[in-house]
């Protein structure tokens, strides 16, 4: 068991290091932030001086080694633009990202799973068609567009919810929905498949033949047996939501990591981008690891011996 965890961590470490290295060099191909920092009309000498003070006059390899050394001591560096430690920025943004992720997951799991189960149980009937339509609709709209439609409807015209910000729970509603719609479809889909799969198995048929009500079968057996694919997808989706909510966060002015990352890319504030990606990598590894361990809890037959997928 612990060998398995160690191995997974080692693999994840390699992947994260690879990602950070790739980003380090690709980002530096895009230039540096000096030109964005100086006001209009700055002289070439001043620009060169500022560049040197930020360390961009050093050879790329030296910059990279310095970055690795800092990373080894958990020093994420200073923001070039804001002049504050990247840790401060990261830590202030993470709570918002977690809130939004939780909101989106609550919506997508909370609605997606039952919809999926219902679709499986009511296969071929009108309710299935209806839910299918709902799910497909959510899946077929660009996030920014459904977001804008919501802002116009719920904020501007109905005045139910604030259009932007993060100062109250109400602010969380629209971003969560916008972000959760896509994931909702995925969960509904996974739940439906899993339930259909189980429904075809002998034990369910036997139980039904014995006259056990369908509802009880669902909650007794199906829930547990369908949990594995759901956990797999959930782990993947959470790690995506954590750092990938760029558009929703920009639109709703939600101060999460996605927004700060995109702004940092535009501002060439490399340390922030690196830190967000690092967080994303850690989160995705963490989620997958938890998923792996949950498999064992849900289904004791699964034993981690180091070779598990």
């Amino acid at each position: 068991m612990s060998r398995f965890i160690l191995k997974r961590c080692w693999q994840a470490f390699i992947a994260a290091l690879g990602a950070l290295t790739l980003l380090f060099f690709v980002q530096r191909l895009t230039g540096d932030p000096t030109l964005l920092l100086v006001p209009e009309g700055a002289t070439a000498e001043d620009i060169a001086m500022l560049r040197a003070s930020l360390g961009f006059d050093q050879p790329l390899l030296v910059q990279y080694l310095r970055y690795l050394k800092d990373l080894g001591t958990f020093n994420l560096g200073m923001s070039y633009v804001q002049g504050v430690p990247v840790w401060d920025i990261l830590l202030s943004r993470i709570p918002y990202t977690l809130q939004l992720t939780a909101g989106a997951m609550l919506l997508s799991l909370g609605l997606g799973l039952p919809i999926g189960v219902l679709m499986a149980l009511q296969r071929g009937t009108l309710p299935e068609r209806f839910f299918q339509a709902v799910v497909f609709t959510g899946q077929s709209m660009p996030t920014f567009f459904s977001g804008i439609l919501m802002i116009l409807l719920f904020a501007v015209h109905l005045r139910w919810l604030p259009a932007s910000g993060s100062d109250s729970g109400a602010s969380l509603v629209m971003p969560s929905i916008a972000l959760g719609l896509l994931t909702l479809a995925t969960f509904a889909r996974v739940a439906r498949t899993a339930v259909l799969d189980e429904l075809g198995k002998d034990y369910v048929r036997t139980a039904r033949a014995k006259g056990v009500p369908l509802g009880r079968i669902v909650w007794r057996h199906l829930a547990r047996n369908s949990a594995i694919p759901v956990i797999t997808v959930a782990a993947l989706e959470i790690s995506h939501l954590l750092a990938g909510a760029v558009i929703v966060e920009t639109l709703f002015a939600w101060p999460g990591l996605g927004q700060v990352a995109v702004q940092a890319i535009e501002a060439r504030d490399f340390p922030i981008v690196q830190a967000v990606v690092l967080f994303g990598a850690v989160a995705s590894v963490g989620c997958n690891l938890i998923a792996d361990l949950l498999y064992g809890v849900v289904d004791p037959r699964i034993r981690h011996t180091g070779g598990a997928q």
Partner: peptide, 15 residues
């Protein structure tokens, strides 16, 4: 406040 999208800034004004 920091609101990057101009459409959202307009929505903020209107609300």
């Amino acid at each position: 406040r920091f609101v990057p999208d101009p459409g959202t800034r307009v929505a903020d004004l209107r609300t």
